[in-house]
Simulated assay, not measured.
Amino acid sequence: MTTDSSPAPEGEGSLPDEVWDQFLRDTETDIRASAPREPSARARIVARRLREEEARLAEASRRRPGRGVRGPGPHAWRSGTTDAAEVRLRRRSRIRGAAAVVLVVLLLLIVLAPGRAWSFIRGDGWQQGGTPGPAPTSVSPQPGPGHTIRT
């Protein structure tokens, strides 16, 4: 009785170990290369958000058939940026722009006419040189007791 447990028939030789190892390596590499890859959690979240956005735009276009529906803003691909946030950012930038223009005008007034600007800050109004001028009078001055008026 023989102790050979190989199922190969008696006329054929078995595969050498090197060939078998090469087969296993090639098979494992091919399986790993062709296996489907599961997307990351972030990719799944982004895909879900895009599907929801498309559904929202489709719903909005069904509600308003005559109007064109605006797509997402230029920063909508960023996570956390919504249309309301973009509106707030635009409003803030407009306010900052207006404040910058007012500041530049005030600085120019101070540089070009510092005396007038200082009198305006003190509350004297826009006086020349920062000193109050003579008070306007509608009555002609009356001469004193020792003066005579010559005509």
Rank of each mutant, 00 (worst) to 15 (best):
P132W: 12
R91T: 12
V101N: 02
T81Q: 01
R32N: 14
A98S: 03
R56E: 07
I121H: 11
V69G: 05
D21K: 00
P145E: 00
R70K: 13
G129V: 13
S61K: 00
Q22G: 12
A76S: 10
T81P: 06
D124T: 07
V111N: 02
L112Q: 11
P136S: 12
P7G: 09
R90M: 04
I31D: 14
P72D: 10
T131G: 14
A76T: 03
G129H: 15
T151Y: 10
D26K: 06
T2V: 05
R25H: 12
D4P: 01
P136D: 11
L50G: 04
R37T: 11
W126V: 13
P65Y: 01
R63K: 08
V19H: 09
V105T: 05
P36K: 06
P145M: 00
L15W: 09
S119P: 06
L107R: 00
P36S: 10
L89W: 11
L107D: 05
G133C: 03
R56P: 03
A98T: 05
R64W: 01
R88C: 13
R32P: 05
W118G: 02
E12I: 08
V46Y: 03
D26I: 06
L24Q: 14
L57I: 06
D30Q: 11
L108W: 07
G146V: 15
E52W: 03
D124N: 13
W126Y: 14
G129M: 11
A58Y: 04
T148P: 09
H147M: 15
D21H: 05
V46C: 02
R42I: 05
L103V: 04
S138Q: 15
R122F: 07
G97A: 07
W20V: 09
G13F: 03
G130N: 15
G125L: 06
D83S: 07
P74M: 07
S79C: 00
L108H: 00
E86T: 06
A33I: 07
E12R: 06
G130W: 09
E18H: 10
G66W: 03
R64I: 03
A60P: 04
A76Q: 04
P132E: 15
R51G: 03
L50W: 02
R42C: 02
R92L: 07
G11W: 03
G97F: 02
E10W: 01
